[in-house]
Design a protein around this nucleic acid. Sequence first.
DNA 1: CAGTAAATCCCATAAAATCCCATAGCATTA
DNA 2: TAATGCTATGGGATTTTATGGGATTTACTG
Lengths: 148, 148
Amino acid sequence: MSLFLSSYENRLDTKGRISVPASFRASLSSEQFAGVVLYRSFTNNCIEGLTMSRMETLAAATDKMGVFDGTLDDLSAMLFADARPLSFDVTGRIMIPADLLAHAGITDRAIFVGRGNSFQIWNPDAFHRAQDAALSRLRTARPDFKIG
Amino acid sequence: MSLFLSSYENRLDTKGRISVPASFRASLSSEQFAGVVLYRSFTNNCIEGLTMSRMETLAAATDKMGVFDGTLDDLSAMLFADARPLSFDVTGRIMIPADLLAHAGITDRAIFVGRGNSFQIWNPDAFHRAQDAALSRLRTARPDFKIG
DNA sequence: CAGTAAATCCCATAAAATCCCATAGCATTA
DNA sequence: TAATGCTATGGGATTTTATGGGATTTACTG
């Protein structure tokens, strides 16, 4: 699977549909399931997005863990119960369920944010605030951090 | 992958396209993805350039870390969200997105600067100023630079 | 079952990105 | 010197993309 990179701000139309960025769809082109899996982020006011095959990888990973691990149990319970498979229409749009939109505070615009092997969907303003905060945390924690 | 070396100043045409130096393209010829990944430098007013395979290495590294690792979260948030995969056209040009150009103060000309395993894209004048400044810092500091 | 709301299919369109071809300059070679 | 090939650049033509909206189908509700 190719990576989810960059950020794309798109609009929700009057019917609540929104285009998944073409480059994200390209990252999904080899998938069996023509669509994405969304769930509410545990850590942010945003929506997490995965491919179906990655969802299956996660299921396999939780199987490997202990049956009596309480935290993990909570985690996978949340994840699988909350996950929504959404298939694309002909033009590559999805309809994001209302409770996910509410969780992320999205009304008329949303930004799709690449995260490598996954992606997120944010209210654009909230995302930019979170990015700014992340940058200052990084500068404080590791003033000389380098990539690669 | 062979190294990115030397500097090349090229023009942006009216459509915003610019040729990636042929020698840089040669350094990328063994890559799966025929193009580059650009993002805004965290430390300078310039654009950083990487290969896609380097991005994939980073994505694999983030997978190995815990889901709730804060610092890593910030770092990958910054990088994956900002990274733009740009593929070459037939003649080896790319279109640099407007926000990256703005970050680097590039309008009609840009200089591609080799950095070994990566490269940078600068406004030519800004680059030459930064080079001069770097040179005088080196003359003052005389850092102890060892090979191997 | 009927009536209503919601979802999906289908087509249209403007802007943007990409493809394709052409050319000028330079360097190398016969 | 003429021929060749590659590089950077220019611009017209085509395709893709995001978005809008009417029409049809599906799902829910009382």
